[in-house]
Structure formats: C-alpha cells, structure tokens
Amino acid sequence: MNYTFTLRTIYPYLGELWQAAAVTLWLSSLAIVLSIALGAGIAVLRRSRLRLLRVLGAVYVEIMRNTPLLVILYVVYFAAPAIGIRLSSFVAALLGLTLNSAGYMAEILRAGLIAVAPGQFEAAQSQGMTGWQVFRHVVFPQVFRTIYAPLGNQVIAVILASSLASAVAVEDVASWMQTVGSTSFRFFETFVIAAIVYLVLCQTVNIARLLIGRWLFRQGATR
C-alpha cells in the first residue's frame, strides 16, 4: 500500500462534522422516542382480545422486521410523492426509522408484558387497585426491568441505522463521510473519523445505560 494516512488534511472539514453529528443525534433521539410510543401501541394491539387487532399488530411487526430499512426510506422519500405525500429528507428519514424501529420496539415491549404472570393482574385487582395503580406498581416496574437491556440494544441499533438516512439526502455523519471522502479523495481518513464518531455516540449511550441500570436496579442484576 502506497498511501500516507494524514488526518491533518481533514481538519478543514471538521466544522461540518459537529453539525452532522448533531443531525445524527437529533434524528436518532426523535426516532427512538417515537418508535417506543408506536411500538407500545402495537404491543398492546398484539395482546388485544380481538383477533383482527392481534393479526394487524403481527402483520405490522413482520413487515417491518422483514424489509430492509433502506427500502422503507426509498418508499417514503422517492415513491410517496407519486401519491401526493412529499416529505423533506429529514422528516422522511425520521418516519422511515420510526416505522422500522417500532417493529422491534413492539416485540421488546410485548416480551416485557408476557413476562408479567396473569395471576399478578388478578392479585392486584383483588387488592382493590385501580387500572392505573396496577400499571404503575405491578406491571410497569416488572416490564421495565425485563425490557431494559434489549431496549438499550435497540437504541444503539437505531443510532447505527440512522446512517442510512444519508441515502435520502440527510446531512448526517455518514453523509459527511461520503462528501468529504469524495471531495478530498481521503476516504481512509473520513471512514475512520466517522467510525469513531458512531463508536463514541453508541458507547456513551451504552455506558449511560449501564450506570442508570445499576442505580435503578440496585438489588438485582442489570445485564
């Protein structure tokens, strides 16, 4: 190999990198919050007494877990204008990421709900607890503990998946990497820098998750 790795050559482009990292962080944070909300709704659908709702929930989950995110992004950004829905790059990417992640979030939350034994609902109700009290004191603490670790994995998965948003013209870290690489022909440097940015973002989330988990579940194992 006849190449001198020279990080110095990338310094002029670092200003745009912070903006790009902010876009990645903002896009993934929004997608995570929205997909937890949507996923919770679908998890509840999948436990509904009505067969139709259960089937609808299952169909949604299977579609989202069995189609590539890139295809969903293309549909939302490039194909939807044909039926009159024109979304900006950011909104299209947010919608695609949310729809996709909600499929996984629904399954994580459903697993948490299943983990609460049905007898506990009955026991709580027989104590005269209201619906909200059952949720707050019996269901939620147990569901939260069950889903805490897989939820952390999904959060990281969303941050990494957000790199595909550059395909629909979002100016995130992956876009910065391609743009600066193509401008300067220094792809090795830009690949390494982008990898470090994603690594730092994800490890920050991971370490925060471990610390918060240790504090929340002081008596039990958190991993």
Partner: peptide, 12 residues
C-alpha cells in the same frame, strides 16, 4: 463504486 475508484488505487 465511487469510494472504490480511489481506495483501490491507494491500496494498489
């Protein structure tokens, strides 16, 4: 691909 046109030269 686009990056490959350059990196394949740089890595010979």
């Amino acid at each position: 691909d686009i990056p490959g046109r350059i990196t394949s030269l740089q890595t010979r």
